[in-house]
Amino acid sequence: MSIQHFRVALIPFFAAFCLPVFAHPETLVKVKDAEDQLGARVGYIELDLNSGKILESFRPEERFPMMSTFKVLLCGAVLSRVDAGQEQLGRRIHYSQNDLVEYSPVTEKHLTDGMTVRELCSAAITMSDNTAANLLLTTIGGPKELTAFLHNMGDHVTRLDRWEPELNEAIPNDERDTTMPAAMATTLRKLLTGELLTLASRQQLIDWMEADKVAGPLLRSALPAGWFIADKSGAGERGSRGIIAALGPDGKPSRIVVIYTTGSQATMDERNRQIAEIGASLIKHW
C-alpha cells in the first residue's frame, strides 16, 4: 500500500482519535458579512469528516447552483462504474471539434489522439474542462443518470439537468442544476469515506481534487503551510461562485467545507476574496 493510499485508508482512524471539535460562531459572522459585502445569498456548511456531524452552517438547506462543483460527483459516478466493471479508466475516447464547448483548455489539445477516461476526469476536476465533463456525462448516460446515481446514494436534493455550459445559467428560483450545502457536503463525505467506492477509487477521487489547479484564489489562499486540501470550485452566471473541499491540518483532511453564493453584482475577484476570507476565519478558529 502506498503512503497516499495509507493516508486515505486511515482518515477515519486518525479522526477518531482527534480531540473533540467545537464550532466557532466567528466564522458564521464572516459568512454573514460576506453576504453584506456581496449583496447576495451565501450558503455555508462545515462537517466533521469522521462523524458527519454538522459543526457550523448557514442557509444549509437553500438551493444554490452547483456550477462546476458537480464534476466531482460526476467522476465519482464514473469511478463507481469502474468498480462495477462497467468502465475502464484506460479506455480512450475520441471526439471532434464539434464536441468542444466553451472553456476546454485540455480537451482542445487532444482532438487528434483523444483522451482516456482517467485523463478526462483529471481534466474535468483539476482544470474544470467543460468538454471533458460533457464527454464523461455521455459515458454514464447524461445528466439524468448522474441525478439517479445521487438518488441511489441517498441524495434526493442534488440534481443535474443540463450539460456544460448551460448548467451554469443560475436563474433565480430555478431548481435545475442545483444542490443544497448540506446535501453536497453529505454526498461528498460519502464519496470520500464511505463504502460506495473502493479504496482505490476513493484515493483516485481525492487525488484529482488535491491536484486542483484553478481554485488557488479561494480556500487555498488562506491555508497555512502543512495543511491538506482537496477541492473543486465552480463559477456561473449572475454572480455565482462555489467551492467544495476536504481539508485539515497535519497533512490530512478532517472536515468537509461547502460554500456557495449566487445573485451578486460583485466582480469575480471580490467573490473570490470573500470566500478566501471565510476560509481564513475557519482556519483561525479551527
Rank of each mutant, 00 (worst) to 15 (best):
N50C: 08
V82G: 05
L196W: 14
M115Q: 07
L191F: 12
L192S: 05
R255W: 01
F58N: 15
L167E: 03
G76T: 07
I140Y: 08
D48V: 05
D99P: 04
G239M: 02
M153Y: 08
A185G: 13
S233T: 13
E175L: 14
E108W: 08
I229N: 02
D33R: 15
A148F: 12
E108P: 07
T112R: 14
Y44K: 00
L146H: 02
K53F: 10
A245M: 04
G142D: 05
L218I: 05
L135S: 04
L47T: 09
A170W: 11
A123I: 04
N168C: 06
L247G: 01
M127E: 14
E46C: 07
L191K: 01
D231K: 04
N152R: 15
C75R: 00
A9M: 14
F58L: 09
W227V: 02
P105L: 06
W286L: 04
A16Y: 08
V257N: 01
I3D: 08
K30F: 07
V31D: 01
F13Y: 10
I140S: 05
L146W: 05
L160G: 04
L135F: 06
E46Q: 10
I93Y: 06
D83Q: 09
T198I: 06
I54K: 07
G239E: 01
K252W: 09
G251C: 09
N168V: 06
A185L: 02
S2F: 11
A170D: 08
I125Q: 02
V42I: 12
E175S: 12
D129P: 00
A9P: 15
I125R: 00
N272V: 04
I244R: 00
I256V: 14
E169D: 13
G142T: 07
E62Y: 08
R189T: 09
I259D: 00
H94S: 11
W227C: 02
W208A: 03
S2L: 15
S233C: 02
A246N: 05
E108V: 13
N168W: 03
E119T: 06
P224G: 07
Y260R: 00
R159V: 07
T187V: 08
D36C: 15
I54A: 13
T126H: 06
E102K: 08
L136A: 06
P253Q: 08
F22W: 14
Q97I: 14
K232N: 01
L219T: 03
W208Q: 03
I206V: 13
F17L: 09
L49S: 07
Y44S: 01
G236L: 01
E166T: 11
P65L: 03
R118W: 15
E102G: 09
A245K: 00
V106D: 07
S104K: 02
T131P: 03
N272G: 05
A246L: 15
I206Y: 15
Q97H: 14
Q37Y: 15
F6G: 06
L136I: 09
M115V: 06
A84K: 11
I93R: 03
Q88L: 11
